[in-house]
Design a binder for these strands. Structure first.
Lengths: 198, 198
DNA sequence: ACCTGAACACCGTTCAAGT
DNA sequence: ACCTGAACACCGTTCAAGT
C-alpha cells in the first residue's frame, strides 16, 4: 500500500488491523504482514521484538481510539447525558465505519487478554476509564452514587455486548432512546441486608 | 487425569476447556493436550481431523451447555419473567462455577468465529435461540412485539457484555432487580418517521 | 479400533551481512 | 538506521507400523 521509503510502527499496526478485519485473527502473521508491506521478515523483527509486541501496540492503539478519543469527543460536544448516551450507542452500532477493526478488534483483544498479562492490564484500564465516565454522566443525570455505578456497569456491558452482536443474528430495530430513558430512571435500591441502599 | 483405557471425544474436549481456562487460549495445542491425556500426537489425529475440528466440537458443546441447556432449565423452572431474568443474570455473574470455560470460552469462541465460517454459524444459531427466548418472555410480560424484540436484544447484549467484564475492572455492586424492572417497563416507542411504533 | 514414533511442513524468530 | 537472506526452532499434520 502507500508507503514512504522507510516504515513506521504505525504502518505495521495499520496493516495488522487491515488483515484482522479482512481475513480474521489468524491472518496476523509475520509473513503476511511483510507481503502486505513489501519487505522481508527481518524488517518486522527490527521494529518489534515479536508478534506479542505488535499485538500490544495494537491494543494500545485501540485503547486510545475506542476509549480515550471517544470520551474526549463526547466531553467536548457538551451534550446532556441522555443525548450523549444515545450518541454512544449510535457510535457502537455503526461499527464498520471505524478504522481500527471495530467489533472484530474487541473480540480479538479480549481474547488476547486471556493469555497475555500486559494486554489484560490495558483492557482493564480502558474498562475502568469507560466506567468512570459513564458513572459521572449518570450522577449528572441525578442518580445516586451506588445507583449510578450500578447502571454505568450495566450500560457498559450493553455497549460491549452490542459490539459483539452487530451483524450477527440480524439484530431487530432497537429503541435506543427508550432504553436510555429506562436507564436514567432511578429505581428503589435495597441492599442484601434489607436496609436502604442510597 | 482420570481416563479409561481408550479415549473419547469428550475427554479431549474437556481437556481443551481445562487448558483454556487454566493457561489461556494459546494453550490449546496438540502436544499439550496429549501430555494432559498421556498419549502421543498421533492419537489426537485419529480422533480429530485437525485443531479446527476440535474447536468446532468445543463450540458445539458450548452451544448446548451455555444456551440450550440454560433455556431448558429456565423453562422447566416455570418462573415469572422478572424472576427468570434475575436468575439469568445471577447465572452469568457466577462465572467460575461453569464447567465449559465460562467467560474465557465466550471470548475465545467469538474470536474463533471471526476466522471460521462453521464456528460463526453456530454462534449465530446460539444468539438467535437466546434472542427468541428472551423475546418470548418479554411478550409474556406484556410488552408489544417490536418493544419485546428491541428489549430482548438489549438484554442479550447486557448479558454477553457482563460475561466479558466479570472479574475485570472489579465491577461495582449491581442492582439487577432494578435493572430488570426497568427493562420490563414499556416505553413510548416512536419510529424514525415519527409514526407510532406499536 | 486406537495408538506409537518418526518424518515432514509451516511459520515464528535469530542473526550476520548489506546499504 | 533499516532491511535482506539464509538458517534454525517449534509445533501442526501425515503416515507406516504396531497392538
Amino acid at each position: 500500500m502507500a508507503q514512504r521509503d522507510t516504515l513506521t510502527p504505525q504502518d505495521w499496526i495499520k496493516a495488522a488491523f487491515r488483515l484482522l478485519t479482512s481475513t480474521g485473527p489468524t491472518a496476523i502473521r509475520v509473513d503476511l504482514l511483510c507481503r502486505e508491506l513489501g519487505v522481508t521478515k527481518g524488517s518486522f523483527y527490527w521494529h518489534f521484538a515479536d508478534l506479542a509486541a505488535l499485538r500490544a501496540q495494537m491494543v494500545a492503539h485501540w485503547r486510545r481510539v475506542a476509549t480515550s478519543d471517544v470520551i474526549a469527543a463526547m466531553t467536548s460536544a457538551e451534550l446532556a447525558p441522555r443525548e450523549l448516551f444515545i450518541r454512544l450507542f449510535e457510535t457502537v452500532l455503526s461499527q464498520p465505519a471505524r478504522d481500527y477493526g471495530g467489533a472484530m478488534a474487541e473480540a480479538a483483544i479480549r481474547h488476547w487478554a486471556a493469555g497475555d498479562e500486559a494486554v489484560q492490564a490495558v483492557v482493564r484500564e480502558a474498562d475502568t476509564e469507560r466506567l468512570a465516565f459513564l458513572t459521572l454522566q449518570l450522577r449528572g443525570a441525578g442518580l445516586s452514587g451506588p445507583e449510578a455505578r450500578s447502571r454505568a456497569a450495566l450500560l457498559l456491558a450493553t455497549l460491549i455486548g452490542l459490539e459483539q452482536l452487530t451483524g450477527e443474528p440480524a439484530l431487530p430495530r432497537l429503541d435506543i432512546p427508550g432504553f436510555v430513558d429506562a436507564m436514567l430512571t432511578p429505581a428503589r435500591m435495597v441492599d442484601a441486608t434489607g436496609g436502604a441502599f442510597a
